[in-house]
Design a protein around this nucleic acid. Structure first.
Length: 156
DNA sequence: GCCAACGTTGGC
DNA sequence: GCCAACGTTGGC
């Protein structure tokens, strides 16, 4: 089981959206960055734990946990000319972009803010600290466990 | 709203 | 293949 950090702008898709449909799977689509795409396509596996991060708000923070329920498959939003994630270079034969499906696990007892993460020397190697723009980030088990402890949250 | 970081595009 | 221009992200 690997840990990941998935970033989202809550105005676009929030942890509450996930929490309100606890038994549903949700596609993590719209990722349009090659490094993040590679993770989604090749490395993210069923059963991996997702630290759900809210970005672009006054208090960016890890707010909850999700789990991966389907591994990388072509992102259909890239094929929809009407959608905002349309990419004319993608096609069914050459999809370019990939997504995974996730499901709600639990809310953090306490949110773990970016400020707290930056203040913890044990977490300074996280991409979030110095490569904040990457939207799908690997998290080491050590980092993951520290964050769960900071959030007063254990694995379900 | 500003701006730094960084990714992408396209001319050469 | 280099690099300047440009666009986007996201913290502040």
């Amino acid at each position: 089981m690997n840990y990941w950090l998935f970033k989202t702008e809550p105005g676009c898709f929030s942890f509450d959206n996930l929490k309100n449909r606890p038994n549903m799977t949700e596609p993590w689509d719209g990722v349009r960055n090659f490094q993040a795409r590679n993770y989604l396509r090749d490395t993210v596996k069923v059963g991996d734990l997702v630290l759900f991060y809210h970005s672009n708000i006054p208090q960016p923070a890890i707010v909850g946990l999700a789990t991966v329920v389907r591994e990388g498959y072509p992102d259909t939003t890239a094929l929809d000319p009407e959608g905002e994630h349309f990419d004319p270079k993608s096609s069914p034969a050459n999809p370019i972009w990939y997504m995974v499906d996730v499901r709600y696990l639990k809310e953090m007892t306490r949110q773990v803010s970016l400020e707290q993460i930056k203040a913890n020397p044990l977490l300074e190697a996280m991409p979030l600290v110095n490569r904040s723009r990457l939207s799908i980030q690997p998290v080491t088990p050590e980092q993951g466990e520290i964050i769960l402890a900071m959030g007063g949250t254990s694995l379900p």
